[in-house]
Design a protein around this nucleic acid. Structure first.
Lengths: 196, 196
DNA sequence: ACAATTATTGACCGAACGGTAAACAACTAA
DNA sequence: TTAGTTGTTTACCGTTCGGTCAATAATTGT
């Protein structure tokens, strides 16, 4: 053994994630990251390799914890429509009550737009997240359709993708800085339109 | 009078816009722009001021021409629902058959996500575009509701915002590189769900 | 106590960044 | 023809970028 690390990897990744969330991958400099993580440049490189590797690790930690939280919502809620409502509510709150209000939108959607077209590694992580969230939606909608609470005029899988698309829309639209209560209203309308 | 400019301002802005569309504002360097516009650095600075001014001018030209095209669709179509269908179709095509397929998504949504939170000038241009597009939607939906073709259980204005949000969603979701026919399918479903 | 190992620190690197300016070229008015 | 004006070219500027490395600090096994 030797000198132990003075920080927790996952704490550092969390801080890095917040920095990337606030400014995007490109616009977040190593200096920004050093300040956000409260670490020297050398320590960051020793622990994570380089800026891109740091990003993919932070992004993976983010997608994994987010997926776990969403999955938990859908497995513990009383019904599919209750789960969907909680999901939308939490999603909106998560975007708003963060540090300094700089974390607007979703790191997933932000990163898809900035990086997916030309960053293969990021794309893999992000597409994986999209796919598994859609699987959660599909399962809930299928269940909801079988009990008659969800509309049955559309295949569950297609409806799940539509929910995904709508979610992406909310995440993007919120970045215009519009009133959150307006968005809550729109979201409630949309949710109701999914029900039978 | 003196030596005339050897290029057209709007042509140069169009080329700049394509470059910004492909890589985003930050990631597009002046060298990228010089190549895309086929202009020397000095000429660009003489004509447009600096990188940010070039961007806002290119963005304004883009939002203005796009708005004109969309407005034309809604004023010349046979009915509100026909207009909405043409709008969604055109929107999807515009994202796909561009040069080298690098222009994915929408410059408006891409820019909102990258810049709106911290770039006040860009935010003004973009919010203006969002607002006037929503006005077009609202007018069409109001008309559609009065003739009974659109659902009337939601206020036209709210439904217009929902359409806006859904459009944002499509623009973002497309960046995952998913199959466009899948998206067309989802979009058709969504459009039908707006009708009475 | 002391070697071995690993983390931290801070100075440093070349490259790329946005931006500037002087020299040159092309046009007009007189 | 020439003076005045403006566009184009190109070399150059300071700054910031991501990244490296040698020196130093902290810990463990023996």
């Amino acid at each position: 053994m030797a000198r132990p690390r003075e920080f927790e990897i996952s704490d550092a990744l969390e801080k890095a994630m917040e920095a990337f969330w606030a400014k995007g991958y490109d616009a977040t400099s190593m200096v920004d990251l050093m300040q956000a993580m409260n670490l020297n440049k050398g320590s960051i490189y020793a622990a994570f390799g380089n800026k891109h590797a740091l990003f993919t690790k932070a992004l993976t930690q983010y997608t994994d914890t987010t997926y776990a939280r969403i999955k938990h919502i859908f497995t513990s809620a009383d019904s599919p429509q209750a789960a969907m409502k909680i999901f939308f509510d939490k999603m909106l709150v998560e975007q708003s009550i963060s540090t300094e209000n700089v974390k607007t939108g979703s790191l997933m959607v932000n990163s898809i737009i900035e990086l997916a077209p030309h960053d293969e590694e990021a794309k893999i992580i992000l597409n994986r997240q999209v796919k598994r969230l859609e699987a959660v939606f599909t399962k809930a909608i299928t269940h909801g359709q079988s009990t008659g609470s969800f509309r049955s005029d559309t295949e569950a899988k297609d409806m799940a993708i539509e929910v995904s698309v709508f979610t992406f829309g909310i995440m993007s639209y919120r970045k215009t800085g519009c009133d959150i209560t307006k968005i809550q209203n729109i979201t409630n309308n949309y949710l109701n339109s999914l029900l039978a």
